[in-house]
Design a protein around this nucleic acid. Sequence first.
DNA 1: TTATTCGCTTGCAAATTGCAAGTTAGATTG
DNA 2: CAATCTAACTTGCAATTTGCAAGCGAATAA
Lengths: 163, 163
Amino acid sequence: MACVTEKTKLVRRSLCPVSISLEVFGDRWSLLIVRDLMVRGYRRFKEFQESGEGIATNILSDRLQRLEASGIITAEAEETDGRRVNYRLTEKGIDLAPVLLELLLWGARNEKTAAPCAVMENMAKNRDEVLAEVRRRWRDRDPTPVLPKFESDGRMETKRRAG
Amino acid sequence: MACVTEKTKLVRRSLCPVSISLEVFGDRWSLLIVRDLMVRGYRRFKEFQESGEGIATNILSDRLQRLEASGIITAEAEETDGRRVNYRLTEKGIDLAPVLLELLLWGARNEKTAAPCAVMENMAKNRDEVLAEVRRRWRDRDPTPVLPKFESDGRMETKRRAG
DNA sequence: TTATTCGCTTGCAAATTGCAAGTTAGATTG
DNA sequence: CAATCTAACTTGCAATTTGCAAGCGAATAA
């Protein structure tokens, strides 16, 4: 029982790979950031912030740090502008491509989204090609989006307390 | 702007399939429950509760309800014992098998887990067969685990506040 | 030098999770 | 039949995390 000099708490968990994976990114924001890096070609804080998902800056900052600590991304200041930080997926991070692709396909098939059906079906039929292309763009540092950004239709879903 | 008679709040989100998927199960507990149904053959509240992940009963209950509301699982009282509720993945739920499999493989490859490497490599090489088997067991209501339960090694990772 | 931009950080409120005890209904036991 | 046990939650409250919006400090532009 090591007594560590950090704020800590008793943690109980299994060593199942799914469980371990979910400890790394078992929250919605982390995988959305990975998506933005992998699929949309985003690199910078401001881009993630404006991704259309409504992430708060403190959460974004926290998640970027966690992803970096987990070895999924790296952060590097731009040489021409020291204020700018460019984030990039690591090999470990790009290895999440199949997870992201399956999430994408599941969502497109089972929920209402703005993704064109034909595009999704094509991706489902050509998983290997898609994954290879994602990896090529990552290797070549090509920021071209794999898919466009599917905006919300501008209508906000509002809910209100009864009464 | 529909005014609903429920507790609600302004929600802003994109219509990207990944984002939508993560709204359904972008928390660690939901996917762990799906794993237990899909991989371990669990059906009952008590089984999930005792899965070794340390889920609190209120969270378990809440997540089961949400998964049911999302159409991912169904809940049915047992005929021989009306206290018992059997949960089962729907077609929509079993369609998450590729997501779970990729999570499993990513975890096994990139993190320290208790999964035997040979088993994981074999699964990675035979994704289609694995997915077919998972679906067959689901269709036949065969609760045989696809994989054993990877226990924590009995040692609890404890942390304590400084001082 | 002032103004703008970038990537955070901060203070506080709201929401969610976690803990452990409690409740209710169904089943079993004696 | 009453007492006891079991299954699936529910509850009250504390701890933690998320969300909002303003603020900060460093780098760059004008």
